[in-house]
Design a binder for these strands. Structure first.
Lengths: 341, 341
DNA sequence: TTGGATTGCGCAAACGTTTGCGCAAAAAAT
DNA sequence: ATTTTTTGCGCAAACGTTTGCGCAATCCAA
């Protein structure tokens, strides 16, 4: 390999090749590019000029070997169908871009995460990891814990290792209950999920506890299977009941299930909010569509992501910081699906 | 740094530390782990045993420095709102996981891609890049071209550098036209987009050319702005026309816009498919929901992704392969929104 | 017994960047 | 004039893995 770039060897400029062009040591080049004032202004200007002229871009991988910081964060996503996760990905990507680092997609969607996939977090020396799926997270979480990689769960409660940033699900569930009670409803339906998800369990717990505190109980439970089709089937089941035996309000534990419920009720000509009030949780953009006009708890996604990155960055600097467990209040957004009292 | 791992220094096992434990050279360890039969079976077994015992995971970054192959592919995604891109991401992630490499999210959604973001492709030595957004792709495409990084555009036509894998958009547009004509419709509406996207232009061209070939013309054009809200507004505009001046069929250039059209028509009590047939393009999962029952052209997404990875891998092995420009026929999926003749 | 072939490794440098340590020249203080 | 301090760098090793080249011991054929 020639030591100076020539037209016939379109190899990228490196610190070494720039040092040869400038007649200085590679460490001088590195220091000049970093603005180290121990290198004279004249030398710094020379090196910066050459770097620009030759289109120098640092090799992030070599840099990581030396410095120990990769500028990469791993991301484990939840199911494709739920737009909440799509919005989470886009917001995380947008904020990462602004902060100058990159996201390595470790896993997306359903199905088990493979050992080799979780191991990629360590192999690529990610500076931290954001996980947004409960079922899939345990392998990734374990491997992060074993290797001292900072970990933040977003929209999930971490059971052992790592920080989390969630919406205050219980408070949100309670808030929906209060709204439905205030609207005069008395037969409360829940579209739930049997997933082991802490998120769903807490939302349900918050909802049920608030009902009980007001002297009411759940009248119906429908398994919504965490997805649109499950919500739709729940809606069909509700519509299939005699009118006087249906719930007069329904809380679906996520917007995607609520949207399924609403579509099924619409196709069955069940009047929302006249006959049944419907509420969801998450606050995805689609919940605002006129066809849904869905009352929901809006998770503060942008702030949750921002806080997640802050937690990760703080723990990159100081690996011994204690875990932080942050719950943020969601905002009740009242729309047409629960009437506009 | 001590040369042998001790409990107090929870540092990862490396080739060097394993070599010290085994009493062999680091190059022997590397070769043993790769199954090189020049290393004796006895030695290979010893090293593999130590690697397992110490939880050895190769450092992908160091490996890349040596071998030149990172096992990373860059991914540039389109807008969050269009579930087609979410499905593309999930499918790409799933296939990458199966093939044993990782996706670096370079950009997602709207807004300009920053120079530093595009440069990340080079800095992290990605083995290739998949781009699925037209407007955002030019910077990433340029930087790949300048640095000899294989590039595949999925669902976009590449203008200069790189391969592409698209759906045959013209044929798909033509197929929708034939269906609407066969259903006896004569006033053809188009929900288009002014985006510079080749995808949209080709779908429109295919549709219009087929109409003209049958002696018909477009009667209405509505700007759907590439998104749900635009489609919805187009639907409202259609619904706001006197019944005898509306199109009797509508082709939206993407499913997300078609879904907006359908929702608006439904809220305006315009009967689909009785009064107006509606068709879309992409074949996203949501198009099959009973509430939409949308006729569409189903892009063969899984195969497109598979082919994209094949193109990239082939060009990793042989950078001088000529670009391949692949168009795959979509499949017409006839559903209730165009009637079930 | 000897020479050639095979086997089973190791050496050393490289990939690209970083940084602790320290040197030599110049400048400043005494 | 001498000593001390400051300035402006460079040396060298490291980060972890890979691989071309080649050596020494063993085996086999003549």
């Amino acid at each position: 390999m020639s030591s100076i770039l020539t037209p016939s060897t379109p190899r990228r400029a490196t610190v070494v090749t720039l040092s040869e062009l400038a007649g200085v040591a590679p460490s001088t080049v590195t220091r000049a590019l970093k603005g180290d004032t121990r290198i004279s202004q004249k030398t710094r200007d020379l090196i910066l000029g050459l770097a620009k002229e030759h289109g120098y871009m640092p090799n992030a991988l070599a840099r990581t070997l030396s410095s120990g910081k990769s500028g990469l964060y791993g991301l484990v996503l939840g199911p494709a169908e739920n737009p909440f996760y799509t919005e989470l990905l886009h917001e995380a990507t947008r904020q990462a871009e602004k902060l100058g680092f990159r996201l390595l997609i470790i896993h997306a969607g359903a199905g088990p995460i493979e050992d080799t996939t979780a191991q990629a977090l360590i192999q690529y020396q990610v500076d931290g990891c954001i996980i947004s799926s409960a079922i899939l997270s345990s392998k990734a979480a374990d491997i992060c814990a074993q290797n001292n990689v900072p970990l933040v769960m977003v929209n999930r409660v971490a059971l052992s290792h790592g920080c989390f940033v969630t919406c205050d699900n219980r408070a949100g569930g309670a808030e929906i209950a209060r709204l439905l009670i205030a609207r005069g409803r008395r037969r409360f339906g829940l579209v739930y999920t049997t997933s082991t998800s802490s998120t769903s369990r807490e939302r349900e717990e918050g909802f049920v506890a608030e009902l009980e505190q007001a002297g009411f109980t759940l009248s119906h439970r429908f398994d919504g299977h965490s997805n649109y089709d499950g919500g739709f089937e729940a809606g069909r089941e509700i519509a299939g009941l005699p009118a006087d035996q249906r719930p007069d309000s329904v809380f679906a534990l996520s917007d995607i299930m609520a949207m399924g419920v609403l579509d099924a009720l619409r196709l069955a000509s069940v009047d929302v909010p006249g006959e049944i009030l419907v509420a969801g949780f998450d606050g995805v953009a689609a919940s605002a569509r006129p066809i849904y006009d869905l009352t929901t708890i809006q998770q503060p996604l942008s702030l949750m992501i921002q806080r997640a990155f802050e937690l990760l960055q703080a723990r990159t600097l100081d690996p011994n910081l204690p875990d932080e467990l942050i719950a943020m209040r969601g905002k009740l957004v009242v729309r047409g699906s629960t009437g506009r009292a």
